[in-house]
Structures are given as C-alpha cells and as structure tokens.
Design a protein around this nucleic acid. Structure first.
Lengths: 221, 221
DNA sequence: AATTTGAATATTGTATACAATATGCGAATG
DNA sequence: CATTCGCATATTGTATACAATATTCAAATT
C-alpha cells in the first residue's frame, strides 16, 4: 500500500490551528487580543492539549505571541515590522521571478491569466489576499524553490493580516494591482526578465507606499 | 516593577527544545533518526507534554518533521534543499549588507575584527558554525532588520547542521573564509557597498560549491 | 488618600491516565 | 513458498487532574 493516503491524517491540533489561523487572517481575532485556552478549547470541543500545540504552530508562523504563564495573544504587528515584511517580499520574489521566467510554459501563462480573470470577478473582492497570493505563487512555482515559496507564503499571510485589519484596499489600488499583474505576465511571456523584475519591484513598493500613506492619513485625522 | 524580569521565565518545553536543538546541531542526533517521545521524556525527566511542545517548535524551525501517529524524526535535508538554503542566504544577506554598511560605526568594525580573531583561535575550530554565524549577525545588525535576521539565523542553522554531518570543513576552506571575512570588513569600512556585495556573493557561492564538490567526491569514491 | 500586602481567584504549565493509530509477527490461505 | 489477515505490542494523540504562576481586589499601613 502507498505510504501516504489520499487525505493525510490530520490531528486535532492541526484542525484547531487552521481554525485559529483563519480567524486571525479574517480579522475575527484582532491583533493584541488574548486567547484564553480554556474558553477556546471548550468552544471548539477539544481539550487544552491540542489547543496548546496549535498555538505553538501559530507562534512559529508569527501569528501569535506566547509568554510563559501569561498565555497567547494575537501577535501585534508594528508598522516597522510590516515594512520589513514588504522588504522581504522584495528580496525573495525578485530572485524567484528571475528563476521562474525561463521555466514558464503555456500552461503556466494560462493559469496566470485565469487567476487574473478570477480576481476581477465580483466575489473576488472578499478574497483579495488569497487570490493575490495564488497569483504570485503560481508565478513562482516554475522556479522550483519549495522552501523559499513556503517562507514567502508566511510573509504574505502576515502582511495580509495587517492590511485587512488596518485598511480596506482601495478600489484604485486593486485595479492598479490587476493591471500590473497582467503586465507582469506579458513581460514573462516575452521572457523579459529585467523588465519583469523592475515592474515587480515597483509593484511591491507601490503596495507598501499605499499602506504607509493610508496609515498616515488615519493618524492625522 | 518592570514588566520583564532579568531572566525571562522559561518553560520546560523551552528547555527541552534547547537541548534537542543542540543535539541536532551538534550531530548527536542525526538526520532521519526517529525521536521516541517516552524514551526522550524519561531521559530528560519530564513528561511527554512539554516534550511534544518542544517538538512543535523544532518542527517550525525545520529541524524535525512530524507525522501524525508516526512521530518525530530529525529532518533529513536533501542536497537540493541545502542548495536552496544557500540561495536564500544570497537573497537575504545581499539586502542586509547593503542596508547595514551605511549605518556601521567604529564599534561595529571593532566587534567584527574581534570575531575574526576569535575564529582563528585554536578552540574556534569546533565552533566554526556558531562563530561564522555571529560574524554575519554582527555585520547585519546595523541594518536594523530584526525579522529578517531571525529568519536568516534559521537558514544558517540548518545549513550548519548539514555541513557538520556530511563534511568536515576543510582547512583551506576555513582559511579562505577568514580571509574573505576580513576583506568584507575592509570593504565595509571603505563604504564600498557594491564591492562588498560582490564579495559576499562570491563568498557564499564558494561555500556552496565547496559543499557540492565534497559531496560529489564522496559519492564517487 | 495613596500604597502595600496578601489571600482568593483565574490562568497557564505539567504529569498521569486513557484512547486511537501504527507496527510487527505469526498463523492461515492460496 | 509467498502473501494476506488478524491479533498483540508499541507508540502517538488527547482528556482529565493537579501544580505552579499570575492577577485581582479588599484590608492594612503610612
């Protein structure tokens, strides 16, 4: 019999981690909010043991902060940390894109086009973060760098969490994002690596700037 | 009273994680080796609960892999993964170095010189990995990018583990490393960012090549 | 009145006990 | 003889119980 089943056996701790991660990413659990073990465990119908293991995982992913004898809180992200995460995107994605473009085939381009269309669909608004990630993920898959990609997903997730909580992505911002995604695919199709890298650089910096100015406006109000 | 004590309260799980991490990094626990919970727990004098939480942490750091109902094994690293880790070093350190150099002061250069001396000391041989990391860490500290630096440490640790297990760093390799470290400091002192980046690039690539050829020679023997 | 003390309460950390799953090995079957 | 089945054992996953630490709030002290 094959070593790995069709659906890999999952443990309660894994399920709990998924639920909590979802709540944090969706904003149902907000930054700084403490997580009372007994309460959450009872609500989810498990004991505190698997809950605690789930919290360990989430801590490693950067979503919660654990303090001995004080417990878990949803990790607060400072503006400085988010800006650092954008810089990480820049460093990681630049290398991934350069390695991916030479290996892209027709299927990859088609998948990317489909994702752009999906993003423009009306129900894509709610899932902006997830769709944006999938676009970038599919684009970097041909680079064949699984460890880097996994790391990058964590960076994206943490940024999304901040974006979702603090600002609603403006309509103009989203539209420019779609346009730039399309341009990225076009440049990749033309195997214009340097052009694509330059655009990606602008794309990421623009998103970061958008965040910065929006926060600035908020604090000035 | 201050919110954080002089020595932050540590939990059994943290202690256990440190012990196991140390054993993995030192090679006492070798890649692929299973970790029997009951056995290790009894040996360390704790129950399986804190041990399991320690294993969660180590899994997040990439040192062990957990499989439901099968347990933990010391994470095997394929050559492809190690090469990817070197690429990650390249991507992360390039950015860190560029940002760090303009902020370096006399104290930083002195600390780097001291670390190079320490590396050359006879007892530095055993601690090559740790000292090498500290050199790079001190060099990137002025960049003020704590998240990135933490990530980079994990990359270094995982590489070290592989290096230590598979090959003994050759004397020539080490000596070249020291030389290049000194040159890096000199270039940083001269604020020659591009020169330092180019050297760092060669430095990392040389280490990766050294590993590759050594492994090649092994498998051919 | 402000501050400190300390016991009552709440919450987390860990050990023990039990349940669920995997593994190994011998008997049954072809 | 090889293969499969099933039970015994080993190992992991989870719940419950208890211990250790933190928090709260009222009384005591200045």
């Amino acid at each position: 019999m094959a070593d790995d089943a069709l659906i890999s056996k999952r443990t309660m701790a894994d399920e709990v981690a998924d639920v909590l991660r979802g709540r944090i990413l969706s904003g149902r659990l907000t930054a700084g909010e403490p997580i009372r073990q007994e309460h959450v465990a009872k609500e989810l119908g498990v004991s505190r043991i698997p809950l605690r293991e789930a919290l360990s995982q989430l801590a490693a992913e950067g979503f919660v902060t654990l303090t001995a004898h004080k417990g878990a809180v949803v990790a607060p992200l400072s503006l400085a940390e988010v800006e650092e995460l954008f810089e990480l995107r820049l460093m990681l994605e630049d290398g991934l894109l350069a390695r991916a473009i030479p290996h892209m085939g027709k299927g990859d381009f088609a998948a990317l086009d489909a994702l752009i269309d999906e993003s423009r669909a009306p129900d894509g608004l709610q899932r902006w973060g997830a769709l944006n990630w999938r676009f970038h993920e599919v684009m970097y898959l041909p680079a064949d760098r699984p460890v880097t990609l996994k790391l990058l997903k964590r960076v994206h997730d943490n940024i999304d969490r901040y974006l979702r909580l603090e600002i609603a992505m403006s309509v103009e911002g989203r539209n420019r994002g779609y346009r730039e995604h399309q341009e990225l695919v076009d440049l990749a199709r033309a195997r214009d690596i340097d052009g694509a890298r330059a655009l990606l650089r602008r794309h990421i910096k623009a998103t970061a700037d958008n965040l910065r100015t929006t926060l600035q406006a908020r604090s000035d109000q």
